[in-house]
Computed example of a mutant assay.
Amino acid sequence: MVTTLAPAPRRQRTRLAALDGLRLICALAVAGYHYGVSWRIDGVRPPTTFLPNAAHLLVYGFLGVEAFFMISGFVIGMSGWDRRPRDFLVARFLRLYPAFWVCVFVTVTVVVLLPVTTGVPYGSSLSLSDVLLNLTMAPQPLGATLVDSVYWTLWCELRFYLVFAVLIAIGLTRRRVEVFCSVWLVAAVAGPSWVMPDYAPYFVGGLALYLLHRFGPHWVTWCLIGASWALGMARVAGRVAALSPGFEVPVLPARIILSLAYGVLIAIALGATRRVTWGWLSTAGALTYPFYLLHQRIGYALLRRGYEHTGLPVWSLIAGTIAAMLGLAWMVHRCAERPVAAWLGRRLAGAGLSRRPAKAG
């Protein structure tokens, strides 16, 4: 009798360049929303004054956050599988905290030197205790003011990582992750705040997409992806309703864009983009995190000064600011994030907290 063995799941943790490219697109979309819609460049007039047509398109850049959470679910599944909880947490620590600490320092310096106090969606005052509590990446539960308002997403990410570390400790299997995702989705429908009901669909969707990538198509996996998509379609309506750009924002384009994000990630999960191996995409992926951390408050300061002192069209100021922030992100990544993460990795490995010096990627 001949026994047919089922194909073994793919265990290699290879970098997917297409995910890096999608990360960059999401970061640029969020920056476009912040620069062109979510504030008043002169402190008084609404965004449609300066970008009468583009503002209606840029407003949907807020969806970059939802896509980031989906990518995070995918990447955390990929980076956590076949790892001990301690190694997973060390790797996440080195990936997130060194760059974050540097970006907090840079942002605080700009806040002091180039304050922007009018027409912005955040308060202007920061105390030393606020800054120190921000360094924990959990200032909201500690009652501190955010150094930069984009940091709110990091607390969501951090909670997801901690919960997933518990799942790693229990032992990762396809079935257990499916049960975890199902329970989380049901809890998100019920709506208690501690399960992050507005964003749980995207983390779950990303995890389910990683299961699709690792184990191949399975009906439970497809059901999870479909359920996360359906709940995301419902939740995004509330996100759109919470926007206040000064003009009506239809929800249908948001649902279409979010559906396209699911489609792209399904294609990546199924291997349709495996031939996309351009080296610059890895660089783009590395820059995305510091760019995201730095872009809002520093970008507002540069745009306000540019508007007041140059008289250039707003679209050109936005393009120049994005280019400047990408350059600053590259400097942070190469000159601070990488060496600090490498040094901390060696120290942690020497202290026996990981099997080997962990990489920041």
Rank of each mutant, 00 (worst) to 15 (best):
292 Y>L: 10
86 R>T: 14
171 G>R: 03
300 Y>K: 02
292 Y>I: 11
67 A>N: 06
38 S>Q: 14
171 G>C: 05
157 E>N: 08
286 A>F: 09
330 W>C: 02
313 P>C: 10
180 F>H: 13
151 Y>W: 12
235 R>H: 00
192 P>Y: 12
346 R>D: 09
280 W>P: 09
57 L>R: 08
191 G>Q: 07
148 D>P: 08
220 V>D: 01
138 A>S: 14
98 P>S: 05
295 H>G: 02
337 E>G: 01
338 R>I: 12
309 H>P: 01
187 A>T: 10
263 G>I: 08
74 F>T: 08
41 I>V: 15
335 C>E: 01
153 T>M: 09
344 L>I: 01
61 G>C: 10
56 H>P: 06
168 I>P: 05
68 F>N: 03
16 L>A: 11
263 G>K: 07
2 V>F: 11
105 F>L: 15
44 V>E: 06
215 F>Y: 11
305 R>G: 12
246 G>M: 01
333 H>P: 00
53 N>G: 15
296 Q>T: 09
78 M>H: 08
244 S>W: 00
91 A>T: 06
98 P>F: 10
108 V>H: 06
171 G>D: 03
278 W>D: 12
284 A>F: 15
302 L>N: 07
199 Y>A: 11
131 V>Q: 11
256 I>Y: 05
132 L>R: 10
343 W>R: 01
86 R>E: 13
49 T>W: 05
45 R>S: 10
14 T>R: 15
15 R>C: 12
96 L>S: 05
152 W>L: 07
235 R>W: 00
183 V>C: 14
